[in-house]
Simulated assay, not measured.
Amino acid sequence: MPFNQNPLFVAGALCVAVFFAIWLTRFSWGKTVGTPILVILICAILSNVGIIPSAMGGHVVYNGVFNYLAPLGIFIALLEVDLKSIKKAGLPLLLMFCLGTLGTVIGVFVAWFVVQPQSEIGDMASAVAG
Rank of each mutant, 00 (worst) to 15 (best):
1 M>Y: 12
2 P>N: 14
6 N>Q: 15
7 P>R: 00
10 V>Q: 06
10 V>M: 06
11 A>H: 01
11 A>T: 11
12 G>V: 04
17 A>L: 03
18 V>A: 14
20 F>E: 08
20 F>S: 14
24 L>Q: 11
26 R>C: 00
29 W>A: 10
30 G>C: 04
31 K>G: 14
34 G>A: 04
35 T>M: 15
35 T>E: 14
36 P>A: 05
37 I>G: 05
37 I>N: 01
41 L>F: 13
42 I>T: 13
44 A>T: 15
46 L>A: 09
47 S>E: 08
48 N>G: 12
51 I>H: 04
51 I>D: 06
51 I>A: 10
54 S>C: 01
55 A>M: 13
55 A>D: 08
57 G>C: 00
57 G>I: 10
58 G>L: 03
58 G>H: 07
59 H>M: 01
61 V>N: 03
61 V>R: 07
61 V>P: 01
63 N>I: 11
63 N>G: 14
65 V>L: 11
65 V>H: 01
69 L>E: 05
72 L>W: 02
73 G>R: 00
74 I>N: 00
77 A>D: 02
78 L>P: 06
82 D>C: 07
83 L>M: 12
84 K>L: 08
84 K>Y: 02
84 K>W: 03
86 I>C: 03
86 I>H: 06
87 K>A: 14
89 A>G: 04
93 L>H: 09
93 L>W: 10
96 M>T: 11
98 C>F: 14
99 L>H: 05
100 G>H: 05
102 L>V: 15
105 V>K: 05
105 V>R: 00
107 G>Q: 05
110 V>G: 00
110 V>F: 10
112 W>M: 10
113 F>V: 11
115 V>S: 03
115 V>D: 05
118 Q>I: 11
119 S>C: 01
120 E>M: 12
122 G>D: 07
122 G>E: 05
126 S>Q: 12
126 S>C: 02
